[in-house]
């Protein structure tokens, strides 16, 4: 079987359970107390990472890199919660992980970092990432990185990737109407932006964590700082729309009456 060189682009987003509040400063928008918010690996990037690790175990000699762009201190903390879940080599870039930074600026930084990965064989490259992020949520970054790296076989919102014995890859992409588009690419290189995939979140494996730490700490120490381009977008306002509704609480109606009222509402 062909070994793959899988590069996963993924970074941190605020723990989705936190209360988020936007602020608009001279540098552009951000989140209130952004550096204080507990963060997690972006959920779709997480799926990509777990799929990458799984694929790598099935294809001996494969390598997995996680290219992560975020504030160094936050990345360091993030690594402690994900490094036990999947085996990877970290490439860290010290920069803002704000969702308000232009995707193209992020994509260029990532593409440059990937280009500089020592030992990466682009003929074996599978560029993985999430189909969207829980921060910018634009769904464009991975494709841009792919294009910048000259990859012309790209797949978006992938739930399944089957690496076949002949080297080809069969891919299922989510399309409209809860359906899948099935395609086969002759083989690497390719870009795969994952939806949720099929794998559950792996358990924390302390030994995997220990192995990862050997590359994580040096990677963090030599993380290059990247200054994001904040000039391409001009934000006029950022706000949380108030959507509070007057809720009618129906406590004393019988089940029959409730069902009738709902049925009328559905039909009406």
């Amino acid at each position: 079987m062909t070994p793959f060189h899988i590069v996963v682009c993924g970074s941190l987003v605020p723990d989705p359970l936190q209360t988020l509040e936007p602020t608009l400063g001279p540098e552009g928008p951000g989140l209130k107390n952004e550096m204080m918010l507990p963060s997690v690996l972006d959920p779709w990037a997480g799926h990509a990472l777990y799929e990458a690790a799984s694929l790598a175990t099935k294809h001996p000699e494969s390598r997995v890199w996680l290219v992560s762009l975020g504030p160094k201190a936050r990345l360091q903390q993030l690594m402690m919660s994900i490094a036990q879940k999947a085996k990877f080599e970290l490439v860290a870039i010290d920069s803002s992980a704000s969702g308000f930074i232009d995707a193209q600026s992020v994509a260029r930084t990532l593409a440059t970092a990937i280009d500089e990965i020592d030992g990466l064989d682009k003929n074996r490259l599978l560029l993985f990432g999430g189909c969207a992020s829980a921060s910018r949520d634009a769904g464009v970054t991975v494709q841009m990185v792919g294009e910048l790296l000259g990859l012309t076989d790209q797949f978006l919102a992938v739930d399944e990737l089957e690496a076949r014995d002949d080297g080809s890859l069969r891919v299922l992409e989510r399309i409209e109407g809860g359906k899948y588009l099935a395609s086969t690419v002759r083989g690497a290189p390719a870009v795969v932006a994952w939806a949720t995939g099929k794998l559950p979140e792996p358990p924390n494996n302390p030994q995997v964590g220990m192995q990862n730490m050997r590359t994580i700490l040096p990677a963090l120490q030599k993380a290059k700082a990247a200054i994001p381009n904040r000039n391409s977008i001009h934000y006029q306002e950022v706000a949380i729309p108030q959507q509070k509704r007057e809720t009618r609480v129906v406590k004393d109606m019988s089940v029959d009456e409730i069902a009738r009222e709902i049925a009328d509402w559905i039909r009406g």
Partner: peptide, 23 residues
């Protein structure tokens, strides 16, 4: 919470000890 994060960040930045949450 913030104090522990601050201490933890200082510690892990040193690379000399490992603190694994969720375990």
């Amino acid at each position: 919470g913030q104090f522990n994060q601050w201490v933890g960040t200082e510690l892990m930045g040193s690379g000399l000890v490992q603190v694994w949450p969720g375990m």
